[in-house]
Design a protein around this nucleic acid. Structure first.
Lengths: 161, 161
DNA sequence: CTTGTTATGTAATATCATAACAATTCGCAA
DNA sequence: TTGCGAATTGTTATGATATTACATAACAAG
């Protein structure tokens, strides 16, 4: 399954991972979210792996930690996290990745490298606006959107060049 | 499975359907595509239904017409058509819809109505550019992208209003 | 006609996701 | 504190989507 760094740059992951977990805890307090053990652990798993993981991979790790072994266990936790903006769903990969900017509303764009299966979440500056503009021309009111691009990350461009 | 008009407006579908099929044939001639019976029939099925169809729905209809009964029959034809820009894949719905502007390169945006499950293909003016711009800032080179927005179509906005 | 290539058909299976129900836990009002 | 309703977790079972692997058939070039 594919990797999912914040961006394609190297960075101290254990730090950002911890940061985000703290932000999630804060969010839970301020917004009254119930970040229960399974849910919190699910988020941790995604943060630790720093990858986009399939639901069954998440499930496997949850099971190792003493949680349930059945698909709904993972799907429910993931659904909750997605709903509250702590996790993103990458439809192209049938996978889930921890959000790198929880709390702050954003319209992420995902860049999926076909070379190394890495996924990066980038701020989709202007993308949301363009989509909303296109929507209004046909009278459509947008609730949510997902933008995923496939291509080559910097490292893999080097390799093929 | 969800419907997929060109846009949310009514129109003479048998006309546009025939047009697109002709365009596909022309494309096959000029670009040397092998629009074989299964492939052509698959495109027809999508055009006839004027909807986004799941692979198994397409398969069922192909089987009725004397083609194979196994999933790869449908998946292969669909893959071919997607690859050559005659069909779009709607990841959010695990479904496929005939492209309404084959030949001319475009960056479609799909609007998926949660009220009536209708899907509309709209020109993503400015969207592609915005994504490409976001990509270059992280050094990513985009090959393909899929942009899908969920919300309410004009008709369904009325209903809930 | 033969050879390499592309396309099609089929069986089997892998992967992803949800429905339905039981048991438990939690928040909260009485 | 007790009891109630709602939310959460767990399990069984099944549904839906997609691919691998291999056999056969069509086709184009030499």
């Amino acid at each position: 399954m594919p990797a999912s760094p914040v961006a394609f740059a190297k960075h101290d992951h254990s730090a950002c991972s911890g940061d985000i977990l703290k932000q999630a805890d804060a969010l839970a307090r301020t917004e009254g979210l119930r970040l229960t053990p399974v849910r919190r652990r699910t988020l941790e798993i995604l943060l630790e792996s720093h990858q986009a993981l399939g639901a069954y991979e998440v499930l496997e790790r949850l099971a190792e930690d003493g949680f349930g072994h059945q698909p709904p266990v993972a799907y429910r936790a993931l659904e909750f996290l997605v709903e509250h903006g702590l996790v993103h769903r990458i439809r192209r990969l049938n996978a889930f990745a921890a959000c790198m900017h929880p709390g702050s509303p954003h319209r992420p764009v995902f860049f999926i490298c076909t070379g190394c299966d890495t996924v990066a979440e980038a701020p989709g500056t202007g993308v949301g606006e363009a989509i909303t503009r296109a929507a209004t021309t046909v009278g459509f009111s947008v609730e949510r959107m997902n933008v995923e691009a496939v291509g080559l990350c910097p490292a893999c461009q080097e390799c093929t060049a």
